[in-house]
Computed example of a mutant assay.
Amino acid sequence: MLAAAVLLLAVLGLASLALGARSVGWSTLLDAWLHADAADGDHAVVRARLPRTAVGVLVGLALGLAGAVMQGVTRNPLADPGILGVNAGAALAVVVAIAGFGVGSVSGYVWFAFAGAAAAAVLVYAVASLARAGATPLTLALAGAATSAGLVSLTNGLLVVSQDTFDRYRFWALGSVAVRSWDAVLDVLPFLVVGTLVALATARALNGLALGEDSARSLGQRPGVARAVAALSVVLLCGAATAVAGPIGFVGLVVPHAARSLVGGDHRWVLPVSAVLGAALLVGADTVGRVLLPPTEVQAGLMTALVGAPVFVWLVRRRTAVGL
């Protein structure tokens, strides 16, 4: 299944390079790689789409993987970076960076996004822990929804008082993988690589947590440490992804369900398959958004909801879906 997911991603990646307001043929796409001609307009189009496709792959991978880790560590099938407030925290921090510090580059956004994502994650867990039963899947979902609503309200409040901040923020907030250079990719790549490696390393610990804390301890695991490491990977992945592409939702919610339906509940397979499927979903959504209403395009953040919602409904209705 992992090989099939990689093949799907490769096909969608090629489609991302070939399709758009100005589409090119497959032969031209191949020629642009083998015999690049700077004077050829079609070759220039293909080269210009490379960073965009790379960002789509990296951001989709990060969000799909982060969603699988969050669902595993909270044992909550509704957990994802958007629902649990991580994306909203990162977005608020970016607005503060724009309004208060005049930050205007991804390399500047990323540190604020990390701080906002981490603060939101800690706040949600702290609020959920105040419940009599502690931080259960239900209390985490409720605390996340309430925290997200509060953070979005604060974000909107800051935008209302600053027209310049609003103008700079509104395009970023829709969620887009469109960039003009490789600078944005290089700014976040180290954080995404580290976050991915840390997340994949938590697979065995997540399998233990799925059996319950007592069972995990009997297997020699330390649930508190496992959750902290998993949370670190989520902050790295979501902070970097949000900084470069804006708050894109639905990827981290839908993709882990699809992965579990394909490979079962073993996180040693769920995590890598979720990463690849997340990249495929975002690249595919961005490509569809480019050809849906030419010559304009629909932002990837909007397309993931349009593409992901029917898939999620189908997964929910399947009686053979694998539980956490």
Rank of each mutant, 00 (worst) to 15 (best):
G252R: 01
S261D: 07
G284Q: 11
V251C: 08
L282I: 05
V273P: 03
R260S: 08
V276Q: 06
V254Y: 03
A275Q: 08
V244F: 10
G249W: 08
G264M: 13
V255F: 07
L282G: 09
T296N: 14
H257R: 04
L277V: 11
H267V: 01
R290V: 05
G264H: 06
V288W: 00
A259I: 06
G265Y: 07
V255R: 03
R260V: 05
L293G: 00
L292H: 00
V291M: 08
V283Q: 10
A245C: 09
L277M: 12
A279H: 01
W269K: 15
P247M: 15
V244I: 14
D266V: 12
I248G: 06
A259P: 09
L262N: 03
T296G: 08
R290L: 13
A258E: 02
R290M: 14
V276F: 01
G246K: 05
G278T: 01
I248M: 11
A258L: 15
R260N: 08
A280Y: 00
A279T: 04
G246D: 10
S261P: 00
G246V: 11
P294D: 02
H257W: 03
L282F: 07
P272N: 12
D266Y: 02
V254E: 01
T287V: 00
A258I: 07
A279D: 07
T296Q: 14
P272V: 10
H267A: 14
A275S: 12
S261N: 14
A280W: 04
V273R: 10
V276C: 11
A279Y: 02
P272L: 13
G246I: 07
V263A: 13
G246R: 11
T296I: 02
S261F: 14
G265E: 09
L253V: 00
S274M: 13
H257I: 00
R268P: 14
D286C: 09
V251P: 04
V273H: 06
R268L: 14
V251T: 12
G289R: 04
A279S: 15
P272R: 11
G246E: 07
L281S: 04
A258Y: 02
G278H: 05
H267P: 01
G246Y: 09
H257T: 06
S274E: 13
V273Q: 07
T296A: 15
P272S: 12
P295K: 02
V270K: 14
V254N: 05
L262H: 02
T287F: 03
V291Q: 03
A245E: 01
P272C: 05
L271Y: 15
V255T: 05
V255A: 05
V288T: 01
V255H: 01
I248D: 07
G249F: 07
